[in-house]
């Protein structure tokens, strides 16, 4: 099994100037490791929609890699997005699923069933899909996977770590997501000039 913190460190080291769209538990770990906060979108107030936002960015900026850090519970709520993504076939799209079998932010309740996300991605039409349950193999393979044309799914069998508390829903935290989206929008516009 892989720990969130270790996998996120690995992804952050190799992200380059890729945009990263993360959701739920992954966002907390990513925020600690990211060296490009101007290219990070956190979906804290749009349940299950990280992969869809990431698809929009990938289609709008085909010159940039787009990573999405999704959860198994989140993806199960938006499973049709796999087929939508496969249909558009963005070559710059990399879909990481943190597959821990629980809804971490709500206290660790189990998801309805442990699905085979690699099989689902391939059956939906992703160009490639991988499944890892040990960090060493993931660290070894990640550089190659990020060179492959997308859409690529990387399913990470992750240790179930229930969040200490749920997603923040304060006035300040809710104001953060739209502000951060505009930061990324400005960074992408600048990068295009």
């Amino acid at each position: 099994m892989i720990r969130y913190a270790d996998s996120v460190v690995t992804i952050a080291k190799l992200r380059g100037d890729a945009v990263c769209v993360s959701t739920m538990t992954q966002s907390g770990y990513w925020a600690k490791e990211s060296k490009r906060p101007d290219l990070d979108v956190y979906i804290s107030n749009g349940m299950s929609k990280a992969s869809s936002v990431a698809l929009g960015i990938a289609l709008g900026r085909p010159d940039r890699k787009v990573l999405t850090l999704d959860g198994d519970g989140s993806l199960l709520m938006n499973l049709g997005s796999l087929v939508t993504i496969a249909g558009m076939a963005p070559v710059n799209f990399y879909h990481f699923v943190f597959d821990n079998g629980i809804y971490a932010v709500t206290g660790g309740q189990p998801v309805p069933h442990r699905a085979d996300f690699k099989a689902l991605a391939l059956a939906s039409g992703y160009r490639a899909a991988y499944d890892f349950d040990d960090l060493e193999s993931f660290v070894t393979e990640l550089p190659r996977m990020l060179r492959e044309p997308g859409p690529v799914m990387v399913n990470l069998r992750t240790v179930a770590e229930s969040a200490a508390h749920g997603v923040d829903q304060t006035w300040e935290s809710n104001a953060r997501m739209p502000k951060q989206m505009r930061v990324v929008q400005a960074a992408l516009a600048k990068g295009k000039q």
């Binding site: 960015i57 289609l59 989206m181 929008q185 295009k192």
Partner: peptide, 13 residues
Amino acid sequence: ESIPIAAGLWIAG
């Protein structure tokens, strides 16, 4: 899916 995809496209300019 349509609104979040539109949001992503808007972020992308």
